[in-house]
Structure formats: structure tokens, C-alpha cells
Nucleic acid binder design. Structure first.
Length: 804
DNA sequence: TAATTCGCTAGACCGA
DNA sequence: TCGGTCTAGCGAA
């Protein structure tokens, strides 16, 4: 019997003569193989009053679609005893879909369960297979599975290829119905080529006859490379739909699927997702979005130039759309465009190569293919993990909540973390303590889980009551909390192992990716609990987590005061403590130890760092201190600026830079004269009219349809004007606008930066709405109160003082 | 198709 | 024209 050995890269199903058949995509030593498993049928469960009787009834009612009904034992809910339910099996998923609709109408069917689980996923769960497993599959002459054996895990070396298109855009944006593809780059591990019909004096250039030739060349490069992963940057919404449309028009195809299928463009939320059969399409743009969400990078713009700079510290030249048109029409600068096209592919490749291990590990963890994992929401990751846990425990997965339940849930919110109002002003010698993984460790340590909630035991009520008056069982591990505990412990072990390893080694990269993937799941769980569409939603649990968190945050603050420190600020999981002159760092270490001795379970307070100086300011238009806004300087003079305008993209760079310089002067040198000078210079510069566009741009995102805005802010006004000039702006577009000289309101004066001439800006606006608001509160902490200035000089306000 | 709450601030909007 | 209120976006955790 022939055998096929290799990694399980993907799984799906296809219909063969009215039967749904599982396909496994295997990465073998040499290439790829598709094998079919005819032995597995789709099914779902029906909960009925009387299994024995209803089994016969349902066979009658589902005649023609049902293949088999059998009685099996399952737990309906986590805490239930197993009971008899009907397992309904079908020949095809289409029949399953038919039947599940019919079942809804049957009065004796109390509930349907697991009727939406994707068939391939069902298969992997039942067969105990996971993506990237190394399999040995015995097949017959038609590549049909006879037997699957799972061999020991082994490292996998992916064959990755990326491509990128440059298109003509005479109308400000490219229209695939009209505008041709000008160049395409394709890159792999060792080389990148640029394809173009015009001659390019570069050794990496490939000349083709026309656009059709270009498409055919890129398709053949992809096919010949026998890829596991095809990477793009924004391929979901741009490159792949574009090349498909062009290929259609030019009467050629993009048959790059392993089964020679075309890419499938699926609607996903507001945008697209492009699926290629047997080949994982990884859109690196989504990876960057995820990294931004995880706080790995902080980006204002998501173009490859910004990404390259922020993630790899490498500058990359941008060729703008108008320049591309110019280059193409004049044939001057084709090499520059080719280089740009090539670098786009290279950065995309690097992104995928760098972050792939994390997504591979996540895929394994939750049994999703790479395509889905790179596109999954965090609650979906958590859900999929819990689906596996349920299957292991013989519990039927809870159904999705219906819309009315979702709405009901959304009406009820709960109280979050505790934020201490800081003591405004300059502080010296600050220790910042914080709880490591606060929410997960609370859930684990207090056994918070929907199934342990208010268990009824008097003892648990006494010993494990959250401050929101919900309590959790102490006698048996909770479904959710125990799952988290396993992940948590595994992560601790991995972190220990990784510590000793060479960071460049393959082993390190894999294990580190494993611990990162665990962290992603651990951190996403608490938020999911309070998410209305989550299958395991529990407002009581989410609320108990935050109730405990407030209690612990307050406890640390109070104990710190008792121990002789000043509790000057804190946010959710942190405490900022000022260390008095007569105390040392060691006292903080001792203090943290004492707290840790009192903390339950795996909760842990750690010392985040020591800071020489810290600045807290008051809110605008009030004397209260602002929360979530501070600047710290560590012992090496490095600044940490949090919450200030400096970190916000919706402030102009000139204001942000000035603010940073002022903060630096204050924290590093304690020099108010210098700070005042910095501000004065900036104001003069603005007044001179010499400020550059890039210093004046304000970035703000359009978050809804333009017609849906009740209040027309500057970014909306600028967007509307831009649309009239032919720009395409959609939900999610980040508007880059400048406040110009002409117009009445600020919105009137706001224009897209690309339409603004250098020098056309409203200096008054940038002075009194940008630079001064960003620095005034800081100057006040230096003792330059408005009152002081009134008496010290003739000026009435700080604003007047700076001559604005 | 979508994780949570807390918090700051701007600029529009609206009524006197 | 003023001042209070509301809409909107973004950041912290």
C-alpha cells in the first residue's frame, strides 16, 4: 500500500457524488499531496425528550436527508451528568444544512447542538489531528486514505513566497476594470524578481510582452515555487482581487490553488478575505494589525514604509501613486519604481518569516489553519480553544447566542478596573509595581468560571467571595479557570526553558512562539467573558474579575502607605510609589515580597522599574490630576511618556515634538527656562510660516459612513471635500489633514494634506489649539501658574506670556 | 465580522 | 457670542 508522509498543512472538504469528502493537504518531502478521506461523515446533535422514541420519529421526519440516527451520551452543560441525545449523521454538509433547518421546526427537538462546526474542523477534532502534525498516510491508488498515523513532531521549514503589484491610477485610485498592472514582484527566501513589459536595467528584472504576459509569469512563478504559504501585503483587499479582475479581462487565469483553483474572494466583515486552496494565503497587513493590537508596535500609518521603519528599523523609499503614473508615462525612473516594487515584496517576506512561528503555534493550539488564525478575532481564538476542551470532556458546545440575547447582554455593562487619581506635579524616586497578568491570574487563583459561579457551598461563599458578591467554588476546578491554569503553567515552564537558550537558535524561536501564543490566549480570555457574542459569556465572572482587581489594587496602595511609601498613582494593575529619602530600593523589594506572601494562587506583584523622576499633570480646565497621563525618567535618563498628546496620532507632530522636548527639559534637567525657550522658538517658527506640512498633519480615522456622522469634525469635513475632488475614502481610512488659512470654522479650514501647498497653514490654530495646549499643563507644574504670571509680569495668562 | 472598561480632550452643536 | 452638552476618536490597562 502506498504511503504519503508529510505535514498537515490544511484540511477542507469537497462533494463527490452527493457525499462530502475530507481533503487533507499534505506538505511532503518533495512537494504537496492532496489525499481524500471518504470514511468520515458530517453530523450534529439533537436534544430530544425521549431519545428512544424520537429516534424513530426523526428518521421519518428527515427521510431523504438523514443517513443515520444514533443515541449517544453527552453532557449538555459543564456541570451536568451525561444524558442520551441523538447524533444525526449525513452524507453531505448540504444535507446537514437542510436537516438542521428542518429540525428547528420539529416540536420534539428541544435543541440542536454543534450544527455549525465546520466539517474539516469536526474531522480534526474527532480524529485527534492538528495542523502541522507529521503524518504517515496509507492511501489507495486514488490517494484515498486507508489509514493515518501520527508520527513524532518535527520542525517544519516553510516554503514562503510573496508577491506585490504596482498599478496605474490615473483617477487617484486604480480601477481594475480600466487600469493595468504595471509591475509585479515575486520573492522567496533567496531572491526577488520584478516583472514588467518595459525594459528595466536591473538583473532582477524579467521582461514580458504585455500585461497578460505579466500575469501569466507571476502565476507560473507561484506555481513553480510549490509554495506552502503565499504572502501579500493587503492581498485580501487589493492585490489578489485586482489581479483576478485583470486576468478575467485579459482572458487568462490565476489558477494558483494546489488543485488548480482560482483564489476565492470572500466577504469578511467590511472587507475581503482571499482563500487559496491548499496554499495558505497570509496577508501580512493583518499580521501588522494584530501586532498593533497586541502593543508590539505603535503605528500611525500602516504602509510598508512605516512598518519597515517601526518593526525592522529600516528606511524604505516610498513612490507615491502620482509618481508611479508619471514614471510609467514618461518611462523615466522605471528602475526606481522596480526597486520600490521589489522592496515591498522583501519587507512583506520578512514580516511573514518573522512572525509566522507565533501564528503556527496559535494554529496548533486552537486547531485552525494559518489562513484562519491570521484572520481570527481574539474571542474566536479563545472559543476555538474551549471547543477543544469541551470535546475532550464530552460536553456539548454551547450554541451561539441569538441576536435578542446579544442585545440583552449588551445593555448590561459592569464596572472595570480601579484608577487612582495621581498627585499632580513632579515626584522623585518612584517605584512602579504591577501585577503580572492580572486578569488571568485572578481567574486562575479564584477559580472564576461560569460553572463554579455561586456553587451553593457555604464554605465557598465564606472563603472565595468576590467584592461584587459573587462567589466561586473551591471544591472542584472550573472549566474555564482550569483551562487557563494549564496554559499558564505551560507558559511558565516554556519561559524558564527559553531563558537559557540562544536567541538565534531554531529551538528558541519555536518555544518562544509557543509561550507567546499562550500569552495571547490568556490575555484574550477575560475580555471575551464580557463580550456579548461569546459562547461562554458570563457578566458575573467578568465583573468578579474586575471586582477582585480593584480590591487588590487598593490593597497594595493601602499597604504601601502603611509601609511608609507614598502611593502617588495607579491604573488597574499598577501602583506608583514614591520612595522617601530615608528609604531604599531594597525596602520596595521587601515590600513586594510581603505582598506576594499574602496573594492567593498564582497572583504575583512584580517590580516593573525604578524611576528617578516622574511628572503628573492636571486636567485641562480643572485642578484635578489627569489619570492615564504621565511621564517617567528612569535611572539611565530614558523617558517613558504615557497618555500624553505626544503618543497620540490625532495631534500634529509639531505639538507632539515640542511637548516631548519640554518634558525632557523638565525631567532631565529640571530646567524651566529651557522649556520656555523651546516653546517660544516653536511659536516663532510657526509664525514665520516656515513650518513643513509633515509637521502639521493631524491623523484621524474615519470610523463610519460619512453620511452617518451627526457632528462634522475636521477630519470628516476634509474627507468630504476630498471625495468631491475624486479621492476614494472608506471606513477605516486615516485622514491626514492640515488646518489651512482659508475658512471660518476649523472644519472649514481642514484639508487633506496632499491638497495643501507648503506654507498654507493657520499658524494661530497650530499655536493655540496644538502647541500651547500640549505644553501649558506641564509649564504649570514648573510653577508657572497663570496667577504667578499675572503678578510677575504684565501678561495675564500663559498664552499671553508666550505672545500668542 | 466584531474582547473589556476607564479616561481625556477636541470641536461641533445648540439654545439663550 | 457665549457656555454648556454631546459626539467622536484615541489611548491605558
Amino acid at each position: 500500500m502506498p504511503k504519503i508522509s508529510g505535514f498537515l498543512l490544511d484540511a477542507d472538504y469537497t462533494d463527490v457524488s452527493e457525499k462530502s469528502v475530507i481533503r487533507l493537504f499534505i506538505k511532503t518531502e518533495k512537494s504537496h499531496e492532496i489525499v481524500k478521506d471518504h470514511s468520515f461523515r458530517p453530523y450534529f446533535y439533537a436534544i430530544v425528550e425521549n431519545p428512544e422514541k424520537d429516534k424513530a420519529k426523526i428518521a421519518e421526519d428527515l427521510k431523504g436527508v438523514l443517513k443515520r440516527a444514533e443515541i449517544v451520551e453527552k453532557k449538555l452543560n459543564i456541570n451536568d451528568k451525561p444524558r442520551e441525545v441523538l447524533k444525526l449523521t449525513f452524507d453531505s454538509t448540504r444535507m446537514l444544512v437542510d436537516a438542521r433547518a428542518k429540525c428547528k421546526e420539529l416540536s420534539y427537538v428541544i435543541e440542536r447542538r454543534e450544527y455549525k462546526l465546520p466539517f474539516a474542523r469536526r474531522y480534526l477534532i474527532d480524529k485527534n489531528l492538528t495542523y502541522f502534525d507529521y503524518l504517515e498516510i496509507s492511501v489507495d491508488e486514488n490517494n484515498s486514505v486507508e489509514k493515518i498515523e501520527k508520527l513524532e513532531d518535527r520542525p517544519i521549514k516553510f516554503n514562503i513566497g510573496v508577491f506585490d503589484l504596482e498599478t496605474l491610477s490615473p483617477e487617484r485610485f486604480s480601477n481594475p476594470q480600466l487600469d493595468p498592472i504595471l509591475m509585479a514582484s515575486f520573492g522567496t527566501e533567496n531572491w526577488t524578481k520584478v516583472i514588467c513589459e518595459k525594459p528595466i536595467e536591473k538583473d532582477y528584472a524579467i521582461k514580458v510582452n504585455d500585461e497578460k504576459g505579466l500575469i501569466e509569469k507571476i502565476v507560473s512563478l507561484i506555481k513553480e515555487s510549490d509554495l506552502d504559504i503565499l504572502g501579500t501585503y493587503n492581498g485580501d483587499s487589493f492585490d489578489i482581487p485586482y489581479i483576478k479582475t485583470r486576468a478575467d479581462k485579459l482572458k487568462t487565469g490565476v489558477k494558483i490553488g494546489l488543485d488548480n483553483s482560482e483564489p476565492m474572494i470572500k466577504r469578511k466583515g467590511m472587507g475581503n478575505a482571499v482563500l487559496i486552496k491548499g496554499l495558505q494565503h497570509v496577508d501580512a497587513y493583518l499580521i501588522v494589525r494584530i501586532l498593533a493590537r497586541l502593543g508590539v508596535v505603535n503605528l500611525i500609518k500602516f504602509d510598508l514604509e512605516s512598518v519597515s521603519e517601526a518593526i525592522f528599523g529600516e528606511w524604505k523609499e516610498k513612490v507615491k501613486a502620482e509618481e508611479i503614473n508619471q514614471i510609467w508615462n514618461s518611462n523615466k525612473g522605471l528602475e526606481r519604481l522596480a526597486n520600490y516594487n521589489k522592496e515591498d515584496s522583501e519587507v512583506t517576506f520578512k514580516l511573514i518569516k518573522n512572525y509566522l512561528p507565533i501564528f503556527v503555534e496559535l494554529s496548533k493550539l486552537v486547531k485552525q489553519n494559518l489562513y484562519d488564525t491570521t484572520r481570527a478575532a481574539s474571542s474566536t481564538l479563545v472559543e476555538n480553544l474551549l471547543v477543544l476542551e469541551s470535546a475532550n470532556l464530552g460536553i456539548l458546545i454551547p450554541n451561539d447566542p441569538n441576536e435578542s440575547l446579544i442585545n440583552q447582554r449588551m445593555m448590561q455593562t459592569y464596572v472595570g478596573g480601579f484608577v487612582k487619581e495621581p498627585e499632580p506635579g513632579l515626584h522623585e524616586n518612584i517605584a512602579v509595581l504591577d501585577f503580572s497578568s492580572l486578569h488571568p491570574t485572578i481567574m486562575i487563583s479564584h477559580n472564576i468560571s461560569p460553572d463554579t459561579l455561586n456553587c451553593g457551598h457555604e464554605e465557598c461563599k465564606q472563603k472565595n467571595m468576590a467584592p461584587n458578591n459573587n462567589y466561586f467554588c473551591t471544591k472542584k476546578p472550573g472549566f474555564l479557570s482550569n483551562t487557563l491554569k494549564q496554559l499558564f503553567e505551560k507558559r511558565i515552564k516554556l519561559k524558564e526553558m527559553v531563558k537559557k537558550m540562544d536567541k538565534e537558535s531554531m529551538e528558541y524561536k519555536v518555544l518562544n512562539a509557543q509561550q507567546t501564543s499562550l500569552k495571547i490566549i490568556l490575555n484574550a480570555t477575560y475580555g471575551s467573558l464580557g463580550y456579548a457574542r461569546f459562547r461562554w459569556y458570563s457578566r458575573e465572572c467578568a465583573s468578579a474579575v474586575t471586582a477582585f482587581s480593584r480590591q487588590y489594587a487598593q490593597m497594595v496602595g493601602a499597604e504601601a502607605e502603611k509601609a511608609g511609601f507614598r502611593w502617588i498613582a495607579g491604573d488597574t494593575d499598577s501602583a506608583f510609589l514614591e520612595i522617601p529619602k530615608n528609604r531604599a530600593k531594597d525596602d520596595i523589594i521587601k515590600f513586594a515580597d510581603e505582598i506576594n506572601n499574602k496573594l492567593p494562587g498564582v497572583m504575583n506583584l512584580e517590580i516593573e522599574g525604578f524611576y528617578k523622576r516622574g511628572l503628573f499633570v492636571t486636567k485641562r480646565g480643572s485642578d484635578e490630576a489627569a489619570k492615564k497621563k504621565y511621564a517617567l525618567m528612569d535611572e539611565k535618563g530614558r523617558l517613558k511618556i504615557v497618555g500624553f498628546e505626544y503618543v497620540r496620532r490625532d495631534w500634529a507632530r509639531i505639538a507632539k515634538d515640542t511637548q516631548r522636548r519640554v518634558i525632557e527639559a523638565v525631567l532631565k534637567e529640571g530646567d524651566s527656562a529651557k522649556a520656555i525657550n523651546i516653546v517660544k522658538e516653536t511659536l516663532d517658527y510657526l509664525k514665520s510660516g516656515k513650518a513643513k506640512k509633515e509637521e502639521l498633519i493631524i491623523y484621524t480615522q474615519i470610523k463610519r459612513k460619512l453620511k452617518d456622522y451627526e457632528s462634522i469634525g475636521p477630519h470628516v469635513a476634509a474627507a468630504k471635500k476630498a471625495i468631491q475632488r475624486g479621492k476614494s475614502i472608506e471606513i477605516g481610512s486615516v485622514i491626514e489633514y492640515i488646518v489651512t488659512k482659508s475658512g471660518k470654522s476649523i472644519s472649514d479650514r481642514a484639508e487633506l494634506a496632499e491638497f495643501v501647498k507648503e506654507g498654507n497653514y493657520d499658524a494661530d490654530y497650530y499655536i493655540s489649539h496644538q502647541v500651547l495646549p500640549a505644553v501649558i499643563k506641564i509649564m504649570q507644574e514648573l510653577g508657572h501658574s497663570e496667577d504667578d504670571l499675572k503678578h510677575g509680569g504684565k501678561q495675564k495668562t500663559l498664552q499671553a506670556f508666550f505672545g500668542a
